[in-house]
Computed example of a mutant assay.
Amino acid sequence: MSIMVTGATGQLGSLIMENLLQLVPSSQIIACVRDLEKAKDLLEKGVEIRFGDYDQPDSLVEAFSGVANLLFISSSHPDDNVRLIQHSEVVNVALKAGVKHLLYTGFAFPPKGQIPANHVHLLTEQMILKSGIDYTFLRNALYMDFINVLGLKEAIQNGELITYPGNWLFNSVTRKDLALATAVVLTTTGHHNQIYELAAPRSWDFDELAEILSELSGTRIVHRQDSNIQHWIYSFLAKLDTASTSNDMEERLMGRPVTTLKESIVTFLQNE
């Protein structure tokens, strides 16, 4: 059966495609992209490429034709109102095209109770439920990449990791782990009408981050909170549930432990 991935050349989408190509024949995979030029390498590997743009519903009608399993990677548009319109078009076209299984990448541990008017992911999940299409909700935790904006290199140089005050806990995971878990869902059975919280099984805090930086750098790094710190990341983090944990990735999907904080930091420091 065909598997389509939207946003197949994006940061997450490209990693999912890499995993899919290791799990199923390329003839079963379809990449839905906005820029055909960026998908040349996938075409060379035998993947079918189709043009599809969330802002152009007509393009989605042709793109989704004959697709059985559709992985709908959420829009990255900065305006939530625009994102909801885009998502609505994707769901509507998927229903009309006869898509059998719609998988959606949302955000882990959304708020319970009444859905906030600005919660794009929960509202999109509701659209999918109302459509009647078999679904799988892949609720991704905070990408581990966010630690890149915390000034790790500066912390090593100055001996201090300075963060905004708060009882911060993080369930973050790497894009590579999310991509593997998603590819497993796409290529195995038993996932229809399931919800997966794709988060780490244990959380970590900034004290632990400072300890690992100390170990890796060979110098003592202390963690200090300072209310004078000004950075957009903290207001963003405060809106999310970054503390709740889940065994879905390790026990139900990946069959191996998630990449640890230490392993992730090594990669980020090497790339700086």
Rank of each mutant, 00 (worst) to 15 (best):
V5P: 01
T6E: 06
T9E: 02
Q11N: 15
L12N: 04
G13R: 01
N19K: 13
L23N: 12
V24A: 11
P25R: 11
I30M: 11
K40I: 07
L43T: 06
K45V: 01
G52I: 02
Q56P: 01
D58H: 12
L60F: 02
G66K: 03
L70Q: 07
F72Y: 14
S74H: 09
H77Q: 07
D79I: 10
N81F: 12
R83N: 04
I85V: 15
H87G: 13
H87P: 08
V90C: 03
L95C: 07
G98W: 04
V99I: 11
H101F: 13
Y104K: 02
F107W: 13
A108V: 11
P110Y: 05
P111S: 14
I115S: 03
P116M: 08
Q126N: 10
L129Q: 12
S131W: 10
G132L: 06
F137M: 07
D145E: 15
D145I: 11
V149W: 13
L161Y: 09
Y164I: 06
G166T: 08
N167K: 13
W168C: 06
L169F: 12
T174N: 00
D177T: 03
L178T: 12
T182W: 08
A183R: 06
V185S: 06
V185F: 06
Y196G: 03
E197K: 04
L198V: 05
P201E: 07
D205F: 09
E211Q: 13
L213G: 02
E215P: 03
G218I: 08
H223L: 06
H223V: 04
D226L: 06
D226W: 07
I229D: 01
S235Q: 15
S246I: 10
N247P: 01
D248F: 11
E250Q: 15
G255D: 10
R256A: 02
T260V: 09
L269E: 05
Q270Y: 10
